[in-house]
């Protein structure tokens, strides 16, 4: 019975996807509902009798600019289409490729 219990526990982890990476994402600050909606990329697509295809963004597909206090105390901004990157930026996670305005 002990042996059987151990097998079940090991099998449980991959099913729930509990990994170090996923738990990091969980710790990121949640976005407010409106911002989450603006970054959502679920469109409603309809086709008219003429053949015209309509792509309704439903208020999503918006690029969103965020701001934070950087390590040097300066205000940083960043525009993204990704909810996860937005949350990382708000959490203060370094986005190393972002240069300070005016840097070469």
């Amino acid at each position: 019975m002990k042996y059987l219990t151990k097998i079940l526990i090991i099998s449980f982890l991959p099913i729930t996807g509990i990994t170090a990476g996923n738990s990091d994402v969980k710790r990121l600050p949640q976005l407010d509902e409106n911002t989450q909606k603006s970054l959502t990329r679920d469109a409603i697509i309809t086709i008219e009798p003429t053949g015209q295809i309509n792509f309704d963004t439903q208020g999503g597909f918006r690029s969103t600019t965020l701001t934070r206090i950087g390590e040097n105390g300066k205000i940083e901004t960043y525009c993204t289409s990704s909810p996860e990157d937005a949350r990382k930026f708000l959490a203060g996670i370094a986005i190393s490729t972002l240069k300070q305005q005016g840097e070469e």
């Binding site: 600050p29 976005l31 407010d32 911002t35 603006s38 970054l39 309509n54 792509f55 309704d56 963004t57 208020g59 999503g60 597909f61 918006r62 690029s63 969103t64 600019t65 965020l66 701001t67 934070r68 206090i69 901004t77 937005a86 930026f89 708000l90 959490a91 203060g92």
Partner: peptide
């Protein structure tokens, strides 16, 4: 940190 704002095409 904060969200400043967003914009995009409606369709």
């Amino acid at each position: 940190s904060a969200v400043l704002g967003s914009a995009g095409p409606t369709s």
